[in-house]
Computed example of a mutant assay.
Amino acid sequence: MKYLLVREDDEGEDELWGRCANVEGLFVDPVPPPREVLTFRGCTPAGPLREAVSRPGESTALLGNGYVEASDDTQVDWWELVDAVVLAHHPSRSDPSLVDVVVGAGVKGAGGGGFRRSGPSRFELFVGNNVSAGQSLRVDGLLAPRQDPAKIPMELIGCEPTGRLLSALRRPRKREGDWAELWALDRTGQVMAHPAVGLGIDGTRPSVLGGTLIDITLTDGGDDRPAPAARPVWEAWYQGVPTVPNQWAPYSSQGRSAWLRLALHARRPRRPDRSGGVHHLDGRFVTDVPGLHCAMSEALAGPGGYFGWGWDAFRDCLCGGFGLTPPFTLIWHDADIARQAPADAVSACEGLLSYAEEIVQVLEDVGVTVVLA
């Protein structure tokens, strides 16, 4: 059995609901949000957006993924933007010193989704790694109601239900809104990951594996599922926590991101932080942001180790609790490869430094001696 279905009981203790041999529909691409057109009115552009609207004779520019934060004196909310593109820009009619910017993007609410203007409000656009792209007086189209994305089902194959799950299967209601965790086990029985899944049951049948097992179709497999590109990464981690350097290198950016997530789940038991010493970062395969964090984690925590999967997480790790704190020395071998990576693989920060250069600055700011070799 490679999977466990686990749910918290009323006392907050983990309770086993079933064991499963396999899962169909675990690896899926999320349904992309529909494209919308937003107009940022009275905008004071900054960073990447300022650069985009200042290009003479050009109106279209790529901003990538980001979010809009709306706030006033009583509430804060935000909306995620997927693949945002500047479609047009022109001086604002209300104030020619400001700019109206038209942006196309997939839009989904990442916050409470209940923001209502009750007074003077601020709308701020962030792109890349929490880089502010400017503030606006309002955003036309942002507060429109949106439908929830379609649910993607999941099928538990070869399931051995416990009494609690058997009881749930006999009930006429489908337990919509109830959630559990699907614990994915490696070959040693250690938990690799535990995405949340809905307990709405759409049907059952005798298992394709035979015997007394059953197959259970869940209405909603949840939003925590890995992408198809993560499947070979999970297969590698199924053999156990990696112990050989650079096993992450052959994978795509999505695969490398999945590697970092598994490394986070597989964190070794907490141990006292240490400082000092010389650590070597193998930069031969640092061709994108996830690759940088894979290599950095390996340099500071060993193969299969974890030391942040993104900008904020990396800064948090440097504060302690992950086995190593500054000061120490980091020798970054083949550092030029990260600097020469394709433009779409490095997130610009305020249009001045690449992501890799910003990481170096963060390290040096907290007392790490960085040697670029």
Rank of each mutant, 00 (worst) to 15 (best):
I359P: 06
V107K: 07
P250D: 01
D215E: 03
L213M: 05
S71A: 14
L330I: 03
G111Y: 14
L98Q: 14
G240L: 06
A295S: 07
R146M: 03
V37W: 09
G351A: 13
A46H: 15
A229Q: 11
D29T: 11
V371M: 10
W332R: 02
V197G: 00
P272F: 11
A313P: 03
T162K: 00
P149L: 07
D77F: 07
W311F: 08
W78P: 01
R231P: 05
E58I: 15
A133L: 11
D100R: 13
G119C: 11
D202Y: 09
L318W: 03
A227T: 13
L4S: 03
P153D: 02
L16M: 00
S347H: 14
I359N: 08
K174N: 15
G12T: 00
R274T: 15
A110T: 09
D140G: 10
Y3K: 02
E176I: 11
G106L: 10
G367M: 10
R339S: 04
R7G: 01
I331V: 14
F27N: 02
V131N: 15
V82P: 05
C319L: 05
A144P: 08
D336R: 11
W17A: 00
V191Q: 01
R270M: 10
Y3A: 03
D288R: 08
S347N: 12
K151Y: 07
S354H: 15
Q239L: 12
E155P: 06
V371K: 15
N130C: 11
D95I: 12
L182A: 06
W234P: 02
D10S: 08
L318F: 04
W179Y: 11
P172Q: 10
W309Q: 11
W259C: 02
G276F: 07
V86A: 02
E181I: 08
V76Y: 02
G104T: 11
E15N: 00
V244F: 10
L137K: 12
F307A: 03
P34N: 04
V107S: 06
P145N: 09
S118R: 13
R146N: 02
P120V: 13
A88C: 08
G351D: 06
W237L: 00
R50N: 11
F314G: 01
F115D: 08
L185T: 12
D344E: 07
V102A: 08
I331E: 01
D288G: 07
S167C: 14
G302E: 01
G221I: 01
E36A: 12
C294A: 04
R271K: 13
G18V: 05
G12A: 02
V244S: 07
R116P: 09
L165V: 12
L352C: 14
G198P: 01
G128F: 12
P32L: 05
E58C: 13
G114M: 14
P232W: 06
L62S: 14
V278S: 05
G189F: 10
Q239K: 14
I331G: 02
